[in-house]
Design a protein around this nucleic acid. Structure first.
Lengths: 341, 341
DNA sequence: TTGTAGGCGTTATCAA
DNA sequence: TTGATAACGCCTACAA
């Protein structure tokens, strides 16, 4: 048995008042008398009234929905981000709808279109690996729908970026390896198309330069950064002459895959090769030796991005904030402690 | 500059036809002549028309939104599930909105209410640890809004469950330990309130019974199943006299935390204590020795649950399907191979 | 403090 | 094949 939806009209009729008063009461308009207000709430409860968001949205032209577009959902980092977004959004009465670009530009374009047609109030985006430009977000900019990029960002004068200082983090990671005595440091990363990879590469180079170590193209190993790709990278490393003595990897998963493979080949970590990863994924404290890595606070990234977006939506002055840079830090564990070993 | 939204009226006016015809054309109603149809589409494109979902929903009383309520977002398993849900939903033109119960009953109730008020077309739920009953989903059942539970389920005659056979999986895990020669097998799990834990416990007991090993209450270690809780469990295990020779853990994270702590205390795995986990989380292949575990296909769970829900929504006969049980399997790695070592 | 009435953008019914 | 029109449920000037 499907019961019919109760509307404010039904309540009004039952109480012999106008629907306007009901609407006002339900929206906590202080102008309604305490008494009527109570009668209305009681009746609403009793009759099982529920607000029709569509009718409201249709009028108010707002949706209370935040769109989220991410490359992939199934990484520890990204779920932490989403968790942060959800928490903040929910506490502010926003819902989130999520879609994945699967690292593909065209899927990202399609997702953006869907979000646009769903009239999200705002958008949180981490760009696909594959994305060449951000023209597909123009419709949002044109309509003043706030778009915030996080982690994988692109500069745009009408949007804010939330991320960490990847260059500095990479610089410190590399510097740490150098200070531990490494001279031949390999950097495993993805094709440097996105900021996260170019910046990390830049930080790596900077640290080398600053310590007068010559940058060698062949020490940059390009990979998809999955755990299995780490094993493949290990192959390459094992063929290098002379053997590298340090590896800085752009992500923990890959670092761990690489370490496991190298250990299987008899390499001692950190004595023969020291390792630093990126993200501070839970695996970092499982692999042996535990992985030195850059703590990248996913939950906070998500929470801050969402908070910022909602502030925009609530009409907070759009300080021309370009970027919000969260703190990251190098967490030193045993995988890099050459000196102590 | 905010451009005004283009409506079907604007298109109609421009082309000197009625809005009804425009609506029909836009919805691919074959009754519209090819010629007008083309004119309408061209005009729509040119004018930047976009469908107003709210107006449509208001009329059609459908939202094309699927609600998802999960305990926590930040685990590998759950992100795989979400990924599966998103994929299927998206391909069928549904959006998903997600909320977390943070394992709390009251938050789950609130979430359910929000979902209800958002008029989701259907709901996918994995129950909070804390949830005592599922009365908060009654409003959905009453209105024939399909609700599908996955992983953490509860029986209800108007909903379907998607999960694996936890009891059997646990039975096989335990049996495997026994066959490897274990006689004193500890089971680390959460307070058995949810099916996943009671069933695994039952499977554990069954295997013991079948092999004439007496079940001992003190071998069941209750924990929150986080990585750090694994370390705490290790403490307890180390104090047991005599030392257990096998551990079956209800989740990989915790298993790994426990293994690491035991190793630090000088215990050899699997020689002294063999381990089996649950989930086949990526850490399972990182910890040393690699963890034997039950493969729990998160992506598929999500995809199947979503597919099933959408089939309901599209009016597929609601075969009185009680449960959909997906295959799981024991993946044997070195953490349990006592005999070979 | 409350009521009246119009409109948000669609779709469906009926008529032409 | 197309058009006129009435809902869908809510909010908000404006009036009382």
């Amino acid at each position: 048995m499907l019961q019919k939806e109760v509307t404010i009209y039904d309540i009004a009729q039952k109480l012999n008042i106008s629907s306007a008063t009901v609407s006002r009461a339900l929206n906590d308009d202080p102008v309604v008398s305490k008494k009527t207000r109570k009668r209305i709430f009681d009746a609403a409860d009793e009759m099982g009234y529920r607000l029709n968001h569509f009718a409201r949205n249709l009028r108010s032209q707002k949706t209370n929905i935040i769109g989220v577009i991410v490359p992939r959902l199934n990484s520890y980092f990204m779920s932490a981000v989403i968790s942060g977004i959800e928490q903040v959004a929910n506490s502010e009465g926003y819902n989130i709808i999520i879609s994945q670009s699967a690292e593909q530009w065209d899927k990202e374009i399609a997702n953006a279109k869907t979000m646009f047609n769903n009239r999200v109030d705002g958008l949180l985006v981490s760009l696909a690996y594959d994305t060449k430009n951000i023209a597909h977000f123009e419709p949002f900019f044109k309509r003043n729908i706030p778009v915030i990029f996080f982690d994988r960002v692109e500069e745009h004068n009408s949007s804010t970026n939330v991320l960490i200082d990847n260059k500095r983090a990479a610089y410190e990671a590399t510097k740490h390896l150098i200070e531990e005595g490494c001279k031949r440091i390999v950097h495993i990363t993805a094709i440097p198309k996105r900021n996260v990879y170019t910046d990390r590469l830049a930080g790596y180079k900077l640290a080398l330069a600053e310590h007068k170590i010559k940058f060698k193209e062949e020490y940059v190993v390009i990979s998809n950064l999955g755990q299995e790709d780490g094993a493949k990278a290990a192959e390459k490393i094992l063929h290098m002459q002379p053997l590298p003595d340090g590896v800085f990897v752009a992500n923990d998963n890959c670092a761990v895959g690489c370490m496991v493979a190298l250990k299987k080949a008899g390499i001692r970590i950190p004595q023969d090769i020291a390792f630093v990863g990126f993200n501070n994924d839970p695996v970092a404290t499982v692999v042996e030796p535990n992985l030195t890595t850059v703590n990248y606070p996913g939950y906070q990234i998500g929470a801050v991005a969402a908070r910022n977006l909602i502030n925009h939506l609530k009409g907070a002055p759009m300080y021309t904030t370009d970027s919000i840079i969260l703190k990251s830090e190098l967490i030193i564990r045993n995988s890099s402690k050459k000196s102590a070993s």
